Simulated assay, not measured.
Amino acid sequence: MKISAIFPLLLLVCSVSTSVENTEVQVPYLQDIRALLREMTASLAQQKVEMRFLQRVNQEHATKLKQQKTEVTRQKTEIDKLNKQLQVKQVAFSASLLGAGSGDTGPFPTYTTLVFANVITDIGKAYNKHTGVFTAPVRGAYHFEWYIGTHGGPHASGAVLVKNSEHTFIAYEHQGSHYGSSSNGVTLLLEVGDDVFLRLWPHTKLFDNQNRHTTFSGHLLFTM
């Protein structure tokens, strides 16, 4: 009877002992996992901080690069503008009325655009010898001069300088005999694309020959 009672007691003691040993083994294992999780969490947090820092640095670099590109574009535009201004500062032309031969132009009953066909100088290519029109390539102050003349008789000689459609100054003379001449000049502020040309005054005439009596000239004084 005593032996039967002791055996279950031994089983209980062994069971309790085994449970205690398993618990003792599990506790350090769980602590290691928790420690590893803490390290991983700290590492992840550090990586997030580093990522935010790198993103901020990259954003600053991107912003700086964009500003540099904008500045390069601005400087290139300014250089192109200065180069263009340097080129268009060299604007001058001079032409006589007739390309060949001699004779009178006019008289006509209405205003008639004069085409100075014999071009002596056309620096900047702003004067059109086919239309007689000078077109301003740049905003600035331009000076123009024109000289006209004809032989005396019933018809005078007259030519008016026109800016776009506006009459500005006129050269005019009339005498009964011999050869008479007249001239005038004006400085105009022109915008890009403004046209300047000469019109023959109604009922007047002009004479020209190989000696170039009737001429039209102009040049850029300075840009504005």
Rank of each mutant, 00 (worst) to 15 (best):
77 T>G: 15
2 K>E: 05
200 L>C: 06
60 E>G: 03
201 W>G: 00
207 F>C: 04
167 H>I: 01
123 I>H: 03
131 T>A: 06
155 H>M: 04
176 G>T: 14
60 E>P: 00
14 C>K: 04
144 F>Q: 05
161 L>M: 13
100 A>S: 14
144 F>P: 05
187 T>K: 01
148 I>Y: 06
126 A>F: 01
203 H>C: 01
14 C>R: 04
141 A>F: 05
9 L>D: 07
109 P>H: 10
101 G>E: 10
76 K>Q: 12
194 D>L: 07
182 S>Q: 02
223 T>S: 10
167 H>N: 12
19 S>N: 11
166 E>Q: 15
105 T>A: 05
120 I>F: 14
118 N>I: 00
165 S>I: 13
94 S>Y: 04
127 Y>D: 02
109 P>N: 15
121 T>I: 11
224 M>V: 15
144 F>R: 02
57 V>N: 06
96 S>T: 12
176 G>I: 11
224 M>H: 07
99 G>Q: 15
8 P>S: 11
31 Q>K: 15
183 S>Y: 12
13 V>M: 10
12 L>N: 06
14 C>G: 05
197 F>G: 04
84 K>Y: 14
167 H>G: 03
17 S>F: 14
71 E>V: 07
185 G>A: 15
33 I>P: 00
203 H>I: 01
1 M>L: 11
204 T>A: 12
145 E>P: 00
81 K>G: 12
13 V>W: 03
